[in-house]
């Protein structure tokens, strides 16, 4: 990411791109203001989102599926929970197929990222992106936007992994290997075990973890969005 990030606020950059960009789904996304950072966290909508990919490199790896659902206030709404398969442009490497169970023939029936990305951006507009280890999701969307529309993606982000790191630091606790994994973090909050590696299940898992984390944040003073976001 560039130096601009440090000089201009997220909202300023959103305005900048809105003025600069030709009509495209990304500009539609930028047309809607980001949630106000000073709002109490419950007054904000979040889109819990997860991708299954062929690997971790946004530059070279491909998206295979996306799952997302809205968190409104302190509720996870399953109403618009969505899971979409994305057609990759290369064969699915065997190593990743073992993890996510998405095979070539099934992926072949899926639609292309070109069709799906606008849907994702629309779901995300006006909301905060919520994910566990959100950098991956953020970078894949950014990469896709640059490829398809020629412009970068910016968005407020809440990362449950980062929140978990803060919890450990607040308690002055050493983080051991594996502690920050979604399933292990969930266990600390008494959340049930889900079968992993489905984009929607992982998105819901992260959303529930977020509800648990906020429930456990000390509430002496109002918790604001800016206390939670990582990218701003």
């Amino acid at each position: 990411m560039s130096i601009w990030k440090h000089l201009f606020s997220l909202e300023e950059r959103r305005n900048w791109w809105t003025r600069k960009m030709p009509a495209c789904p990304l500009r539609d996304f930028y047309e809607v203001p980001f949630p106000d950072r000073d709002l109490e966290w419950r007054q904000v909508d979040y889109l819990a989102l997860d991708f299954e990919t062929t690997g971790l490199q946004a530059g070279s790896d491909q998206l295979l599926s996306v799952g997302y659902a809205t968190v409104r206030g302190d509720s996870l709404l399953l109403r618009d929970a969505t899971h979409i398969l994305i057609r990759p442009t290369i064969d699915i490497p065997e190593a990743s197929a073992v993890v996510h169970g998405i095979l070539d023939d099934r992926a072949a029936e899926a639609r292309s990222l070109e069709v799906i990305l606008p849907q994702i951006l629309q779901a995300l507009s006006g909301k905060v992106l919520l994910a566990h280890h959100a950098a991956i999701e953020y970078e894949f969307i950014d990469h896709a936007c640059r490829n398809l529309y020629g412009y970068p993606f910016v968005c407020p982000v809440v990362d449950t992994l980062a929140l978990e790191v803060r919890q450990f630091r607040l308690r002055d606790q050493a983080i051991r290997s594996g502690d920050l994994r979604l399933a292990n973090a969930r266990r600390r909050y008494g959340l049930p075990r889900y079968p992993a590696h489905n984009a929607l299940t992982d998105a819901l898992s992260a959303a529930e973890l977020f509800l648990a984390q906020t429930a456990y944040r000390s509430t002496r003073r109002a918790l604001r969005l800016k206390d939670l976001v990582v990218v701003s």
């Binding site: 399953l78 529930e208 429930a215």
Partner: peptide, 12 residues
């Protein structure tokens, strides 16, 4: 039915 549910978390 699942699509009609909301999920809430309550700490101890």
């Amino acid at each position: 039915l699942p699509g009609k549910l909301q999920v809430r978390y309550f700490r101890r």
